[in-house]
């Protein structure tokens, strides 16, 4: 079988700078693949390559089994970070333009945005704009959805609605490639591809990406004192209530606490995605 979209050893250079370095990636029907990485990791550049907006310097990309072309793009729904909507057109006019571009003769504005038909898009809240951008991307029942930071800047409720739409679409067989640096969103993906400095540094299901990584959990009364001490020792400390979580081994953390005359229960616990991501990216980017 052929994947909906794929990259094989795809590389792109801008002068001496390698923005995407030998990336392999595939998205199949009905699966949601999350492209996870910090800002500047190369996610958007990779997406632009997959869509044919940038030509790989080396390697190849394919869209629906062929080169990105007018015919293959007809089956694509794309929501860029900028949303790609016309602020000076109304909701209805934006919808009419896109459906006409995709050759849809008769279409009805989705219920989620129908109430704003006559509003200028520029006057809408960011959450509503994103909802419209999604509706527009879904308008022609695409085989593949490519979403670049789809929930950036929207509240948790809107974000939740958008993810419901993404999952519903995948259940109907649409492949979804979504870039994010939000860990909670990434956990909703079927597979993850983690990028750092233009390279894929981890890939697989949530469990595979986290692997058997553990972090050290510190239960203590004086969490502020412990936080200051461990942070001062250069550890990345996460606070969960009065519990602190840091990378390393229980023995090492206990030793540090002892050195600072601080107490607390120290134990190893399975890492979450964010901790695994920090570990993966830190090791991949020693700078």
């Amino acid at each position: 079988m052929q994947y909906l979209v794929g990259a094989r050893s795809a590389t792109i250079r801008f002068g001496d700078f390698t923005a995407v370095d030998r990336v392999d990636l595939e998205v199949g029907s009905g699966e949601v693949v999350g492209l996870l990485g910090a800002n500047g990791a190369g996610k958007t550049t990779l997406i632009r390559m997959l869509l044919g907006l940038l030509i790989p310097t080396r390697g190849s990309v394919s869209l629906f089994g062929g080169r990105p072309s007018r015919a293959t793009r007809r089956r694509l729904g794309y929501v860029p970070q900028s949303l790609g909507l016309y602020d000076d057109l109304t909701v209805g006019e934006n919808w009419a333009f896109t459906t006409a571009a995709f050759g849809i003769a008769e279409s009805t504005l989705p219920e989620s945005v129908a109430g704003y038909r006559h509003e200028l898009v520029g006057d809408l809240s960011l959450g509503l704009k994103r909802r419209l951008a999604f509706a527009v991307a879904f308008s022609h029942d695409p085989g593949l959805l490519v979403l670049d930071e789809p929930t950036s800047g929207v509240g948790p409720l809107s974000s939740s609605h958008l993810w419901e739409d993404i999952r519903a679409s995948a259940e109907r067989g649409t492949g979804v490639l979504v870039t994010t640096h939000n860990m909670e969103e990434a956990e909703q993906c079927d597979r993850l591809v983690v990028m750092a400095e233009g390279r894929v540094v981890a890939a697989g299901t949530l469990g595979q990406v986290i692997g058997d990584r553990h972090v050290v959990q510190v239960d203590c009364a004086d969490w502020r004192g412990v936080f200051a001490a461990l942070d001062g020792d250069g550890l990345i400390v996460q606070v969960h209530g009065s519990r602190l979580r840091v990378p390393g081994t229980p023995e090492h953390v206990a030793g540090l606490l002892h050195r600072h005359d601080l107490g607390g229960d120290v134990s190893a616990v399975p890492a979450n995605l964010e901790e695994a991501f920090v570990d993966i990216v830190t090791k991949a980017s020693p700078r």
């Binding site: 079988m1 979209v5 595939e26 907006l53 190849s60 089994g65 062929g66 080169r67 072309s69």
Partner: peptide, 18 residues
């Protein structure tokens, strides 16, 4: 609009298949 118009040789293209 269409950088692919400057496409390289056909030999470089390889559809990605499972």
């Amino acid at each position: 609009l269409a950088p692919s118009a400057r496409h390289r040789g056909e030999d470089d293209f390889e559809p990605v298949a499972a």
